[in-house]
Amino acid sequence: MSYAKHNWYMIFGAVITFVMVLLIVVGYFWTPYSPTAICAAERFDGPSFAHLFGTDNLGRDIFSRVLDGAGTTLFISVSTVLIGLITGILIGGLTGYFGGWIDEVVMRMNDSLTAFPSMLLALVIIGILGPGTYNVIIALGIMFIPSFARMVRSEFVRCKNLDYVKSARLMRAGPLRIIFLHILPNTRSTLLSAVAIGFNNAVLAEAGLSYLGIGVMPPQASLGRMLSESQSYLFSAPWYSISTGFTIILLILGFTLLGEGIRQQAGVD
């Protein structure tokens, strides 16, 4: 039950995220111009009614590319977080609930995965698999598993000694039933805010990988790739980097606020 009058984090976060997602959905079906259409005559046009965010070095409409690129970025981050979350729940849930040697072994493997700097780990995986949207998802997904697993595990360790879990065990409910029906729903507030923070990290990581040129491959647009291209024209065409950078900021801001809002909502409970 919330006694706070308004959870502004939640409200602003939800509004920003909603608008961004709406734009991305629109961008999926319709963009003012084709995001990949090159027009030599319109290179480096500033923002105008024809081209809302101006055009880039190849005369492509930046607004269309931002819509398209944000969609790619969002798709990558959603898939990444889902991989991390689902695998994390399975690993963390089983180790946290059963404990014992299985917990020790799996969590030490988890630790060794965490010991790599995360970007380096992603670089290694992409180095093996090669660049491309789906390989970026796999690399980032693997990178995200340890933190989710650790969090889910600690929540399970906390919950498994609560009386309602004990009474479920007394009724001889099966372990899977206890894990998914009795404990998992009670970890939702922690998980939800972790998911929101996970989205941020995924957006940034994708932007980072594409910025390094090993993420999404051209001509496909993604926010990170566009940002990396735009830095060559930072002074001649500042609108390029500004519009791309702001889109990344808004996307992350929305998720961060939403995550903070959920956390506060749970804290008031």
Partner: peptide, 13 residues
């Protein structure tokens, strides 16, 4: 065999 626990705040899910 069934059991009622001490703390009603934590004994229900």
């Amino acid at each position: 065999i069934s059991m009622v626990f001490q703390e009603p705040m934590t004994s229900l899910n």
